[in-house]
Design a protein around this nucleic acid. Structure first.
Lengths: 221, 221
DNA sequence: GTTTTGTCTGTGACTAGGTCACAGACTGCT
DNA sequence: AGCAGTCTGTGACCTAGTCACAGACAAAAC
């Protein structure tokens, strides 16, 4: 059973019918996963539908040759689309989900999930909308990988990862995995950005000095 | 109203509960679309859930710069995932669907679709499974675009498009759009394949002469 | 039949990006 | 201080994408 009133953390679920909310709360568990945990991946399917209360999950694809690409991140208040698809369609995926930070999540067992989908229009809508957003996201990834330049994509990613702090603790290798490219390519691009005074690099970290420069490149035609 | 007993064309729907099948048949229309019709695309959302009876639909993504990439094809007995996502999540997509051949399809209105999802476990399962398969597909596309070589991808695509007839009526430009690359790249690769005796090219068409050669490359490490 | 028009294909030169091999440089540990 | 493991830099080379333009072909127009 779930400890508290976590439903209110999810705007899409606040209007959940009370007689539906009750079994949901009763059969779900609030779980804690520590940073680095592999939540799902090829060969082990998720057992439950996860709603994140706290933390972020990184979903990525790993190729046979060992190269990686980040597909999207799931943050607090969201649910993982692949988990959803997996539960809904009874299919397995080649992508894997990693807890980037410590994560608190609500785990809804498959049986409850099935029942809620059947009985609650609100719940259906919540699940489907989340799903829809992810698909849009994946299409964007395809477009980026196929057609966008790496310098532009890197600038975008640095802005996104840096947040307000404008400080990013990632190795070049990890940044390459973000974009699905090679480490050397990232190193060279970062050198160029540094030469232009947009960033400062240090071992394992990057500081954004001139976000406007990056933004200009990031929105290039 | 639908003309006939089209439900039996869809294995996943054969077990549909009779009291559910009735409204489905009554409110759905069998429609005919001629080759080349744009079924959905940015700016005009699909109005109904489509089940294909005959023909194929190509779903592709077009970038601002005019480059294209084929995401997947929907054939007889299948449904279009993006349409599904769109109906389910009330979102719009940047991809477009084009009838590649003349198409016969069953159009299920949104209201009916919503009701069926709510009332029929069989229908839900049918929709979700189809959806799941598409997602797997999209992940594969991402992996290919990001990590696979174009010669390998082209060989795969030629085998797939050629079918048993081993004859493909596509221009180099169209093949480039299949893989999300540039026309010149395709031209050069085809020249190389021809030099190796695997294919014969003519204006607007390609004949596969040595499928084994292509297969060998297609399954390269 | 010939000309015109539009589409399709071929090619060279160049830029961007990915691969390979290896050299240093920076931790953290002993 | 010495050492191991990780992280970063770099040159050489290959693959892929871009640009510009030249022909080749097919169908329609004359």
């Amino acid at each position: 059973m779930a400890s508290a009133d976590w439903i209110s953390s999810f705007p899409g679920l606040r209007k959940l019918e009370p007689d539906v909310a009750k079994p949901l709360i009763e059969t779900s568990n609030v779980v804690h996963l520590s940073a680095g945990t592999r939540i799902f991946g090829p060969g082990h399917a998720p057992e439950a539908y996860l709603l994140l209360l706290q933390g972020t999950v990184r979903v990525q694809q790993v190729s046979e040759t060992g190269r990686e690409i980040v597909l999207y991140r799931v943050s607090a208040g969201e649910s993982c689309a692949l988990t959803t698809a997996c539960l809904m369609g009874y299919e397995e995926y080649q992508a894997e989900g990693i807890a980037e930070t410590d994560v608190d999540a609500v785990a809804i067992p498959r049986a409850t999930f099935d029942e809620l989908i059947a009985t609650s229009a609100t719940f259906r809508r919540f699940v489907f909308t989340a799903f829809s957003v992810r698909i849009t996201n994946l299409l964007r990834v395809i477009e980026d990988v196929a057609f966008a330049r790496v310098d532009v994509r890197l600038a975008q990613r640095l802005l996104q990862l840096g947040g307000d702090a404008r400080h990013i603790e990632l190795t070049h290798q990890a940044l390459a995995a973000e974009l699905g490219t090679a480490r050397e390519v990232i190193s060279r691009q970062l050198n160029e950005f540094q030469r232009r005074g947009w960033i400062a690099t240090s071992r394992g970290a990057i500081d954004v000095l001139n976000a406007d420069g990056l933004r200009k490149l990031a929105s290039a035609p």
